[in-house]
């Protein structure tokens, strides 16, 4: 019997994977986690099994995600330091006690990446607009697709362009077209190069706590929307997923227009 279809499956899992380091896996993991606790907290449904918690599993031996999570006072984020041997156990436990699990992986091809991909609802592959990143993203997604074959289900995956310059540059456009030509699905929202994402690593303050109406916060908002819409479509819709979607919808309607008007969305051609 397929493990993926086992009835104890609880909440969605998102893995941040890339065979290349320094592409923004930890940054993306952190902004997604903090944005989701913000949304889940504002939804306010006490007594639910996940209680609005987001578990971050740091399977990177550098422990960068754990380091930045130590700086935050967000009580809804649980951080678990893990490795390839413990990952499956940690995942199972995390799924029981949270509404979303985010796995941050090491920037190499490794066993933990394989397991994380095999268990995930969505694998996000951050990549910068450079040739090296295109090559590594192709490798990473190749592994994810083979893993999907072996576990016998679809694993949604997206390349997330990261650290893209605020202003349009030809090399970024060229990289976008290279990802498309390589057959890699791009998330329509990119993680833009912003000082707020760098200062976050020192202060632990996610963009919405630095400047709630600022461009970095707006970027995270639209990025999270894009991510959740994929999970909503692809996950076996359980109680927790429904809650996430509901929290997301509540957030959509409550979002001030000023922020909605400036999402850092670029059309992918």
């Amino acid at each position: 019997m397929s493990v993926a279809a086992s009835p104890e499956r609880k909440c969605p899992i998102i893995a941040l994977a890339s065979t290349k380091g320094g592409v923004g896996k930890t940054t993306l993991a952190y902004v997604l986690a903090t944005e989701m606790t913000r949304r889940l907290a504002s939804k306010g449904t006490p007594g639910m099994p996940g209680a609005g918690r987001v578990t971050c599993i740091d399977a990177d031996p550098n422990r960068t995600l754990a380091q930045v999570l130590r700086l935050t006072d967000d009580r809804l984020i649980v951080c678990v330091e893990s490795d390839s041997d413990r990952l499956l156990t940690d995942l199972r436990e995390a799924q029981l006690e949270s509404d979303l699990v985010i796995i941050d992986l090491e920037g190499t091809a490794n066993q933990a990446m394989l397991y994380a991909a095999g268990k995930s609802d969505l694998v996000l592959v951050p990549a910068q607009p450079s040739r090296f990143d295109v090559v590594e993203a192709v490798k990473t997604i190749g592994v994810v697709r083979k893993a999907a074959d072996l576990v016998g289900r679809e694993i949604a995956h997206r390349v997330v362009l990261s650290r893209t310059p605020v202003l349009r540059q030809r090399v970024s456009d060229h990289s976008r077209s290279q990802f498309v030509r390589a057959g890699l699905p791009l998330l329509p929202v990119e993680l833009v190069q912003r000082a707020a994402f760098q200062s976050m690593t020192y202060t632990g303050k996610p963009p919405w706590r630095q400047d709630g109406g600022g461009p970095a916060a707006a970027n995270v908002t639209s990025l999270t929307d894009a991510v959740l819409s994929i999970i909503g479509l692809h996950s076996p819709t359980g109680l927790h997923s429904a809650r996430l979607v509901a929290a997301n919808e509540a957030h959509e309607t409550a979002r001030p227009r000023a922020i909605a008007a400036r999402p850092d969305v670029r059309p992918v051609t």
Binding site: V3, L88, T89, A109, L114, G118, G142, L150, V151
Partner: peptide, 23 residues
């Protein structure tokens, strides 16, 4: 059961080991 599940899961993904292990 969970451990059995995990073992089955690992075995399933074993063919990909060469892709993810460093030479």
């Amino acid at each position: 059961t969970a451990e059995q599940d995990d073992a089955a899961f690992r075995a399933r993904l074993a063919p990909l080991a060469s892709e993810v292990l460093p030479p």
